[in-house]
Structures are given as structure tokens and as C-alpha cells.
């Protein structure tokens, strides 16, 4: 069953984010995928996430497909122009990658190729339009395609800074849905009550909403997020909880698991971002009772 059908059947969908390697050693990726195969519905492959050069998401998606899982790849306009992206999209279809997530390319100032040239040929809405066009069988230049690709395409919401920003993001998301986004992926928030409130707003756009569960790993990371991303509402109590725990790693896994449990009834699906700790995903799912 494809992701799209699962959404339409209102099944709770579990996505796991896995980065492609910076290099050609795919053993970790493949091992992690194998451990999760029966437990998740799809793997989200970011593309040059954080502006750090990695193996392309397209190849990552193809590997996931080979392992028998459904891939979902990021597309964005920072590094490629419309020619390259359209070409890649056609390739994606052929390689069995049918789930796309249109994202905003990360600022390369934080990445590892800070002197790279920005392309930014297409913005997020343009990309959605492009996909829409491909689905109809024409490219952006209006030429007819030989064979139409099929995609299930969604969009991403930026981290919410405050309530004003929330309204702004809501508006943007609506525009994206209007432009063809079939689902919305909402960034991580660590306060369930507040998160529910945000999710409800996005749910009003009438497309499936996917929440993001971001795995904390230690106090340092929790503190960093609480300081640098106040919109995540990461509370002092949560930091204290990790600090007080006998085994902090296990506690973090529990926290992620609990988040998922609580979000399960709120959203159409969740994406778990374990960033590098994909080998702990099975434990998180255990804690979430999935």
C-alpha cells in the first residue's frame, strides 16, 4: 500500500528521517533501514540537509526502494535549476520514488560549502507548481512529456517562532496546499499542548498533517534547542527530566516515544528525526507502543 493510500484510509503513518552518507559507504543506512523495515511506512531522505554536502537524496531514495521500503525525498531550489530538478523528478519516478517533500533549502552559511553559489531558480511554490505540471504531463516550458510521472507531494512548515509567525506560516502553507501540496509536515515542538494547538490550525487546511518528533540526545542538546529555538517550547522541566534520569539516553528515547504516543491521536502521521541515532529508532517505536 502506498503512503497516499494509507493517508486516505486514515491509517497512522510513521516516517523516519535518514540522511544519506557523506561518502559512498551506505552500510549504516542499509542496516538501519533493515531494522525498521516492518515498523515504519516510509523513509524521509533529506537532500544536503543543513547545507552539508551528502549523497543526493535521489540515490538515497533508490536505495530505500531497493530495500523494500517507501522513500520520500526532499526537493528544493537552492542547488539546482529547473532543468536539473525536472530531470531528477522524472528519474525519481522511474526509480520508484513517488513521495516528494518540497522544502526550503537550508542557509548554506551553516553548511560545509559556504562559498557555493546559490541557484534559487525555483521557490517552494514554484516547485509545487512544477510537480503539478509534471503530473499533468508537461514540463515547465510547456512541452509534453512522454509518459506522466506520479507523485504524492507535500510541503514543509518552517520552525514557528511565535504566534505571529504561526499565522504567517499558516498562510504560506495554505498557498502551498493551493499550489498542490497534498500533505503538510510540521516542525518539531516539545510541548504537546502547544503542539496540538498548532496542529489543529494546520489541520484546518484539510490535508494530512505530519508532525515531527525530534529526538533529544542529552541535556546539552535540549538546552541548545531551548535557547535557540524558543518556538519549540522545550521546557525547563523537560531538561530537568533528562538531567535527573539515571540513564539519559534511555530517558531521551522515552521522551521521543511518549511524544509519538501522544501525537498518535492528533495527526495523520509522524516523522521521527533521530539525526544519526537511527539505530535507536526501534527502541523509540517500542516506547511509543508501535
Amino acid at each position: 500500500m502506498t503512503l497516499q493510500t494509507k493517508f486516505s484510509k486514515e491509517e497512522f503513518v510513521i516516517l523516519a528521517e535518514m540522511n544519506t552518507p557523506k561518502g559512498v559507504d551506505i552500510s549504516d543506512l542499509v542496516t538501519n533501514v533493515r531494522h525498521l523495515k516492518s515498523r515504519i511506512d516510509a523513509v524521509v531522505i533529506p537532500d544536503m540537509d543543513n547545507g552539508v554536502m551528502h549523497m543526493s537524496a535521489l540515490a538515497g531514495g533508490a536505495i530505500i526502494r531497493q530495500q523494500g521500503l517507501e522513500p520520500m525525498i526532499h526537493i528544493y531550489g537552492r542547488d539546482r535549476n529547473r532543468m536539473a530538478i525536472q530531470g531528477d523528478m522524472l528519474a525519481a519516478h522511474v526509480l520508484g520514488i513517488h513521495n516528494l517533500l518540497v522544502v526550503q533549502g537550508e542557509n548554506i552559511a551553516h553548511g560545509d560549502h559556504q562559498d557555493a553559489k546559490l541557484v534559487d531558480d525555483l521557490g517552494e511554490l514554484d516547485l509545487l507548481g512544477m510537480v503539478h505540471s509534471l503530473l499533468k504531463g508537461t514540463d515547465l516550458a510547456g512541452f509534453e512529456l512522454k509518459g506522466k510521472p506520479e507523485f504524492f507531494t507535500g510541503c514543509q512548515v518552517q520552525p514557528i517562532r511565535d504566534d505571529d509567525h504561526l499565522e504567517e506560516e499558516l498562510k504560506t502553507a495554505k498557498a502551498k496546499v493551493d499550489a498542490g501540496a497534498q500533505y503538510i509536515m510540521v516542525p518539531p515542538v516539545f510541548d504537546i499542548a502547544y503542539y496540538t494547538q498548532i496542529l489543529n490550525k494546520f489541520k484546518s487546511l484539510n490535508v494530512p498533517v505530519i508532525a515531527t518528533v525530534f529526538m533529544l540526545k542529552n541535556v546539552g542538546m535540549a538546552r541548545y534547542i531551548s535557547i535557540n529555538d524558543p518556538g519549540s517550547k522545550l521546557s525547563e522541566a523537560l531538561i530537568t527530566r533528562i538531567r535527573k534520569a539515571k540513564d539519559r539516553e534511555t530517558e531521551c528515547i522515552h521522551i521521543a516515544g511518549e511524544m509519538i504516543k501522544e501525537l498518535k491521536t492528533e495527526v495523520a502521521g509522524i516523522k521521527i528525526s533521530a539525526s544519526g541515532w537511527e539505530d535507536r529508532l526501534p527502541a523509540i517505536l517500542d516506547c511509543a507502543g508501535l
Binding site: D49, N50, N228, S275
Partner: peptide, 22 residues
């Protein structure tokens, strides 16, 4: 965020940037 290995061959995991790249 994590650490393993032995003296002379350590492996340390870090997360950086606004999106906490690992």
C-alpha cells in the same frame, strides 16, 4: 551528543547548525 572508542581512536557524534545536523 555521543562518544565511543578507545584512546587513540575516539568517535564523537556532534549535532550542529540550526537544524542540528549530525
Amino acid at each position: 551528543v555521543d562518544h565511543s572508542g578507545i584512546p587513540g581512536r575516539f568517535k564523537t557524534g556532534i549535532q550542529s547548525g540550526p537544524r542540528m545536523n549530525y
